[in-house]
Design a protein around this nucleic acid. Structure first.
Lengths: 153, 153
DNA sequence: CAAAACGGTTGCATGATGAAACCGTCCTGG
DNA sequence: CCAGGACGGTTTCATCATGCAACCGTTTTG
């Protein structure tokens, strides 16, 4: 059967997962944020099969997360770069990384620091209008129709 | 072949994706944050196959994201609840939701608001030590050994 | 000119997925 | 008290996705 599509799910999260929610896509994006641009470099650094990488890069280009540009003067050399939409995934990847470090420990020895000050970046927090940190229990999912509370989830 | 495991990838992001990076896991967590706790409710609200849901719930329990508790006085009734680790994914899911709404438009008509003030929550931003918003270009991935810049990714 | 790099495509074996049927326990209605 | 349904699964099977290796056309390099 065709892999279930989430387009009909009427959910922004599902829509996001439809574009970057599989095993490799987010890792490709993360690798691109580290500066990787070439097909072979993605392949070697991630240890991904070439056909799968090809498929993922095409899908990321199709969904506007990356762009394929003819690199340099030569013929069959390309670069895969993040678009603005792709770079905007920085928040998502950072949230994932921080979550993993909090609960699974630091796996790589990478540390994100402000490149100017050299200080580590802040922990991400969902915040209310006034800047107060909010947990999932502190928010309400307001719908035009029904209204479901997120209490004691 | 066995699905590639990311444990050996020495990457926190890969480690996170190993736990919640497949198609359904994050949607199950998101659904749990809306208050869903029962097997049948997850199944009906997500439209997921029962065997897949069973597999995902077990994996989420194994990785400590959810817990399976005997519900009420009866025998074969259970509730699947988020643990602290699972609730902490709120930031990740919110980042995904906000990203999707920025670039794909709002798909559901859900809006997250502070349940006390009723005001919508803030946009998530990666911030430096001083609270200044940082893009991926503004950070450095500092390694104990090598040091790779994220310039013009 | 030969060989290698690059960016793929193809074929194959295996794993994951989705749909439906089935199952044992418990609760409810009549 | 019995039938039927809710609940939480498991099993089977057809199809899709994945990983691996081989191959390929172009371009660049030695």
């Amino acid at each position: 059967m065709t892999r279930k599509r989430f387009d009909d799910l009427d959910c922004s999260v599902a829509c996001a997962l439809d574009q970057v929610g599989d095993w490799w896509s987010l890792l490709v994006v993360k690798e691109a944020m580290l500066g990787t641009r070439r097909f072979v470099d993605f392949q070697q650094r991630l240890g991904i099969a070439k056909n799968i990488l090809c498929n993922r890069l095409n899908r990321l280009v199709d969904s506007g997360v990356m762009s394929k540009v003819d690199a340099g003067e030569h013929g069959t050399r390309y670069e895969y770069r993040l678009t603005d939409k792709g770079r905007d995934l920085f928040t998502v990847i950072t949230a994932l990384r921080q979550w993993s470090e909090r609960w699974n420990g630091n796996r790589d020895d990478l540390r994100l620091v402000d490149r100017i000050s050299g200080h580590p970046i802040r922990q991400l927090h969902v915040e209310g209008d006034d800047g107060q940190p909010l947990t999932v229990r502190d928010v309400r999912f307001e719908n035009t129709g029904v209204e479901r509370l997120a209490t004691d989830a």
